[in-house]
Amino acid sequence: MAPSKRKLELVCPAGSAPMLRAAIEGGADSVYCGLRDETNARNFPGLNLDAAELAAAVNWTHEKGGKLLLAINTFARAGDTGEWQRAVDCAARSGVDAVIAADLGVLAYAHSVWPDLRLHLSVQAAAGTPQAIAFYAETFGVKRVVLPRVLSVEEVTRLTRAVDVEIEAFVYGGLCVMAEGRCALSSYAAPGSPNLTGVCSPPDSVRFVESQGMTTARLGDFAIDRHAPGEPAGYPTLCKSRFVIDDKPAYLFEDPVSLNAMDMLAGLKRAGVTAVKVEGRQRGKAYVSRVARAFRQAIDALEAGRPTAPYADMLADLAEGRKETSGAYRKSWR
């Protein structure tokens, strides 16, 4: 696909109806949300929508000129696929603009039962080659692919030139360093993992214990980090935990850090990216309002030939651990 001449589509998270409204009012072109069950990868208590709320959200979003995408992006359980099929039925009947899915069975069901339902391939499918993307497009009619967060801008460019679907790329929010859709690390310390039960490090397994002037973060039965008063800390997940190695505390996989690729919007558009995506359905309406407004202004500036740099400072205090990275886009995580 040739470089897009269209304006970049801004896709923002909506973990609740108030968050959805904040995203659209902040300048998002599209919002993505999930149903209140295990079919989506942000299955946290208090988040997501039921069927009636989804239908109302679709109507409101369309009235405002936006689009609503429904994430059905966990992997269905063997012998128990009914919940995922019902989610697809709910999506189609509610009039969503697209379903974001990863599971082959879910995609097959949606494509065969609801042939007019637009399908986007979730990042959870980790499709990062022309051959993989072509398979999903030809087999299930997928119209857009959300890229895994492991590709450089140069690799994204080569990929978009070789496929004939829309490409969506993450530009802001929490950064998972594992291969999307392949991580079960959380399930070793707590019940469930994001690709099966829709939640990494479930809140009911997280505890913070104060002792001797320090705060210890625990996941299940495991102490996974310890912080001094006022020290920046992220949400306790095993992949961003700190352990004592050679008598020194160090992060084993990656330190808490957030992706911010605002200064790469022009390069991503030249690479052929259609839409840019913000992560954070669990973060709340204040978060999405600020991020949507910042990226709306940056995208508008890009289209007008102005620099986007001034808007990046609007988000510095929202980053996990108060640190930002360009991720794999420059092949240097920090």
Rank of each mutant, 00 (worst) to 15 (best):
K5G: 01
K5D: 13
K7Y: 07
L8E: 12
E9F: 08
C12A: 15
C12M: 15
P13T: 05
A14G: 07
A14I: 06
G15N: 11
A17E: 08
A17R: 14
L20H: 00
L20I: 00
A23F: 14
I24S: 01
E25N: 14
G26A: 14
D29A: 08
S30P: 00
V31Q: 03
V31E: 05
Y32N: 10
C33Y: 00
C33L: 15
G34D: 02
L35C: 02
L35H: 04
R36P: 09
R36M: 13
D37L: 08
D37K: 05
E38W: 08
T39Q: 03
T39Y: 03
T39G: 01
N40R: 13
A41W: 04
A41G: 06
R42T: 12
R42W: 09
F44C: 06
P45A: 13
L49R: 01
D50Y: 13
D50E: 12
A51L: 00
A51Y: 00
A52Y: 05
L54D: 01
L54G: 02
A56G: 04
A57G: 02
A57Y: 05
V58G: 07
N59W: 01
T61W: 00
H62S: 03
E63T: 04
E63R: 11
K64A: 11
K64V: 07
K64M: 13
K64T: 00
G65D: 09
G66I: 01
G66K: 02
K67I: 06
K67W: 12
L68P: 02
L69E: 10
I72K: 04
F75G: 01
A76D: 12
R77V: 13
R77A: 14
A78R: 15
G79H: 10
G79Q: 04
G79V: 12
D80Q: 15
W84D: 06
W84V: 03
W84I: 04
R86V: 11
A87C: 11
V88F: 07
D89S: 10
D89K: 13
C90Q: 12
C90S: 15
A92G: 10
G95P: 07
G95R: 01
V96F: 02
V96E: 03
V96G: 01
D97G: 13
A98T: 07
A98H: 05
V99A: 00
D103W: 02
G105S: 06
Y109T: 03
A110Q: 06
A110D: 05
A110E: 02
H111D: 09
D116C: 04
L117D: 05
L119F: 00
L119M: 15
L121N: 08
L121S: 13
L121C: 11
S122L: 06
Q124C: 12
A126E: 04
T129C: 12
T129P: 00
T129M: 11
F135C: 09
F135Q: 05
F135V: 12
Y136V: 12
A137V: 05
E138V: 03
T139F: 03
F140A: 10
G141A: 06
G141H: 11
V142M: 03
V142H: 07
V142E: 05
